[in-house]
Design a protein around this nucleic acid. Sequence first.
RNA 1: GCCUCUAUAGCUUAACGGAUAAAGCAACGGUCUUCUAAACCGUCGAUCUAGGUUCGAUUCCUAGUAGGGGCACCA
Length: 606
Amino acid sequence: MFTQEQQLIETKIKEFCAANDIALAELKWQPIPFSGEWGFATSFFQTAANEARAGKGSKLPVPQKAQEIAEQVKAQIGSVDGISRIDAVKGYLNLYFSTSAYASRVVDAVLASRLDFGRGAAKDETVMVEYAQPNTHHSFHIGHARNTILGETLARLVEFAGYKTIRASYPGDLGLGVITVMWMYNRFYKGQEPEGVHERGQWLAKLYVEATAMLEKQENETPEQTAQRESYDAERREMYRKWDAGDTSVRELWRETREWSLEELRDVLEMLDVKIDVWFYESELDEPSKIIVDELIAKDIATDERSQGGAVIVKIDEKLGLTKEKYRTNILLRSDGTTLYLTKDLALAKVKFEKYHVDRSIYVVDVRQSMHLQQAFAILKLWGFPQSEKCYHLGYGFVSLPEGAMSARRGRVVLFKDVADEAVKRVMAVESEKSGDVPASEREKIAYQIGMGALIYSMLSVDNNKDIVFDINEALSFDGRTGPYIQNAYVRANSILKKAQVTSYELQGVRSTFEYELTKHEIELIEQISRFPKTVEQAANEYRPLVMAAYAYDLANTFHSFYHAVNVMQTENEKTRNARLQLVMAAKQTIENALRLLGIQSPDVM
RNA sequence: GCCUCUAUAGCUUAACGGAUAAAGCAACGGUCUUCUAAACCGUCGAUCUAGGUUCGAUUCCUAGUAGGGGCACCA
């Protein structure tokens, strides 16, 4: 927010260095730490090191030399409009703001932009974020939730940063797992499905567990059991064959059961406030991907070894001219001519680039598929798509349970819906004792917002490449570094404004005046608010939801401290009180904007 | 065997190559007649090992140790 001052100072520093034959290193700006005052800083260590290496000037150790330069620069700059004080400390040049002017600038900027405060300038690039890719015929578990939460936050970040953003979901709706569920249903449960979107979706997952148990070879099987199992498996394979051949009744069964899963998925996404723009289905990419294989063979990217009883493969390293093994070789078509995951991903990428004009393509996919995606990107490059350079795999660590890995086969999963329900229950339990004035009609809705806030934040506050052992008590904790903590800061800000009866017209559109001695807490709050736009930029550029999650907590933390230290309503001086109320409005707005990027709601009361 | 990720306080996690490594939980001690104590304030407490690069390394490089994950007809 302070680029003008920064540039002015930078110019002065450059002039000084040029005049004195100092090889200035790149200037990097940062906030001044440990300050009750407020400003920005840069250091001269690199410059001093450059000088020392060139053998110029005094032979001081680098830190002293940096300090010397800082002092000289300070003397050279003199006074700058809007900067109250300049210090040269330990090799750093610290520039302190004229507090009241900057306080007004920050607060007014927030109040002028409101929901758009922090939004980046519109960019001429289209980003597609692909996430929410669960398989159909299974139920949505907490691992899928991590994927979806990460993807949605990333989508919100890049969108807010100014990119045209397309949200894509890619459910896996074919394969042996899907057929297994269909076979189980058709054989034993036809027409017995329960009512209710989630009940039905979860029931399909139960069928899968039951079917797996029936179809897996058991220890100490009797001959009858073996025969039974083999006969079941033959039925299943026959069903797969029919599906593949386009058999009408099997296809109809498939469409019907698939829809049950998709209904549940859509409901879950709504619960998470996710609005998918484009749905891709694996089944729809099967045929197109076969055509692509022919093209890749024709272009001599893929090698057809089918005549020797082999498969169609891509020797990626060889084609890229790499001598060291990196991407290795992968298969595009099985020897029986059927496609694989990689084949379909290539077809999907083509659609993304050609039909949706995607410049950047982000894949939010389990880190275990890292190799697979690197291979896919490499093949896209060979294929001649320049966008392959801007394909990015946002991998994320495994979500496991304290008792071990989740397993859909064995039914050892924690379902998202169950956690969400539990979250509401727990919030309702504390709501009655902790909050007085939550209207009865709003109770459940607010409990849901808080419960989801806790769950979402717990997923976002861990760096994406780290594994998570899911502990429901930790995920739904409401104390400390959590979603509800941040929501509570918002509620408190709102509460002050309500009490003060600041309605929209009185203090809005009126330029704030901070013509008084600001407390340390106010300055820190303003400083924190001013960092929001840069944080958006950083989080979006680096594809790191965690950066925004960390910021949201820091902002809330600063607000809570301010709240305790400064009593806004009891401020005697009216001008000071008004300025503080505007600061509270700005803080409230910024917290809301940050939470919105995380996909967390901001309840007015809690 | 090759590739890759991770290693920070008792536990869970932060930290553009730069100033005093930051939080939460747990423990201990304070703070509600005052804008909501789902909060605030304080105490205790940490960079896996060995080299290297650098003026400066938790951060980069190499090796090691420990633990995940991946490596052609699964997704």
